[in-house]
Simulated assay, not measured.
Amino acid sequence: MKTNPGRFFEDYRLGETITHAVPRTLSGGERALYHALYPARHALYSSDKFARACGLAAAPLDDLIAFHTVFGKTVPDISLNAVANLGYAEGRWLQPVNAGDTLRSESTVIGLKENSNGKSGVVYVRTKGFNQDDEPVLEYVRWVMVRKGNLDAPAPSAVVPQLASVVVPEALSIPKRLTFSNYDFTLAGEPHRWADYAVGEVIDHVDGVTIEEAEHMMATRLWQNTAKVHFDATVRDDGKRLIYGGHIISLARALSFNGLANAQMIVALNGGAHANPCFAGDTVRAWSEVLEKAETDRPGVGAIRLRLVATRGQAGALKGADGKYLPEVLLDLDYWALMPL
């Protein structure tokens, strides 16, 4: 057989490292299409001049372009036969990705646990993205529910990794030359700085976007994500194409500009859950909660920890009395961003 049916749960081995195909060189084309697919307009990623005033050589590509590219490389080996992508932890952006950089990915299996139904199991992997100089640019842990191909295959010994609930501020990787000492709030779009946000504050980002079928499939193809559930309507019992969770992450992040225009670089992903499935026709809105703040050793640069929620419902609504996510909640993402003091 020359075609690739993808791995099933029983095909993974604890401790194995998988080198993913195919390396990809990124260009300004990815930036332009990203900004077309999402209402992305953070100044640091939009203007070379603005980025140079912040100490960088040029505007880097959006951090989520790097994430989607690295993630997309892993899909044929990790989640081609996935039921669902369940969560993230211990994510760190280690250095900016610029136009012209070539990214590749590697994943190590760090946990396995078969589900009680015997039809699927959860695979935990730590993925790292590298540039053309073999320098790490991104790392994260994710866990995904994968179908079994052979229902009679024996269950592996259950290993569930112990993962940190948050990346501590001291572990944040901040670009060496980054400074917000000459930050232009007018050009950035909002006057609100790090000191203006209070822990516990909830920000309704106001705007909404109704997702179109062709749009989300184009976005998923852009990242070379080949998971069947995003394209083939016959894979799911309900006959619907499941929208790639990363599409919702980028959409919510872009919507968060209204109220968090100065939350510039994403530097860590503490945790995340795709709480409920999203389909074409859904109208997505977003809200954020300020979870924590920390100072850094860089001039004018503060770190702000945010909970970003994508929802079909109202701002501030997250879980019911039973502790479970409300059915209208699509995404619950916990991340660190850099913001001018």
Rank of each mutant, 00 (worst) to 15 (best):
Y38G: 03
D62L: 12
T25H: 00
A51I: 04
A40F: 13
V70R: 06
H42M: 10
F8K: 06
G72P: 09
P23G: 05
R31F: 07
D48Q: 09
A57Q: 11
Y12S: 13
E30I: 00
H35W: 08
F9H: 10
P60K: 06
A66N: 12
G55A: 02
R24I: 07
R41Q: 13
R52T: 12
K49F: 02
R13Q: 15
A53E: 15
P39N: 11
L14K: 09
A43W: 01
T74D: 09
A51P: 04
V22G: 09
F50S: 02
L44G: 05
F8D: 11
T19C: 05
L56M: 11
A36K: 07
D11S: 12
D77Y: 14
K73M: 14
I65E: 03
L14A: 12
E16K: 10
H68P: 00
L56C: 08
V75G: 01
V70M: 06
A58N: 03
E16R: 11
C54A: 09
D62Q: 15
A40E: 15
Y34F: 15
R7S: 12
R24D: 05
P76E: 06
I65P: 05
P39F: 10
G72N: 09
R13F: 11
L26V: 02
E10I: 09
K49Q: 14
I78P: 10
H42W: 13
F50R: 07
V70T: 13
F8T: 13
A43L: 08
A53D: 14
Y12C: 12
L64W: 14
A58V: 05
I18S: 08
P60T: 04
S27G: 11
D11M: 12
C54W: 01
H20L: 05
E16S: 14
V75Q: 12
A58H: 06
V75I: 15
Y45E: 08
P23Y: 05
L26A: 00
P23F: 01
Y34R: 06
G15Q: 07
V70E: 04
D77C: 13
P23T: 02
E16C: 08
D62S: 14
D11Y: 11
I65Y: 01
D77V: 07
Y38M: 15
L37R: 02
Y45G: 05
C54D: 03
F50D: 03
G55P: 05
I18Y: 07
F50C: 05
Y12N: 12
H42T: 10
T25I: 01
G29N: 03
L14N: 09
K49S: 15
A43H: 04
A21H: 03
A36M: 10
G72H: 08
F71H: 15
K49P: 01
A58K: 14
T74R: 12
G55W: 03
L61Y: 01
S46K: 05
G55R: 01
A43Q: 09
I78R: 09
R52P: 00
F67L: 15
A59R: 08
A53N: 14
R31M: 12
D63Y: 05
I78V: 15
L56R: 10
A57P: 02
A43V: 08
S47Y: 08
V22N: 10
R31D: 13
T17A: 07
A66I: 01
L37E: 06
T69M: 02
A66H: 06
R13K: 13
V70A: 07
L61S: 01
Y34K: 03
K73N: 13
Y45W: 09
V75D: 03
P76L: 05
L64E: 11
A21I: 04
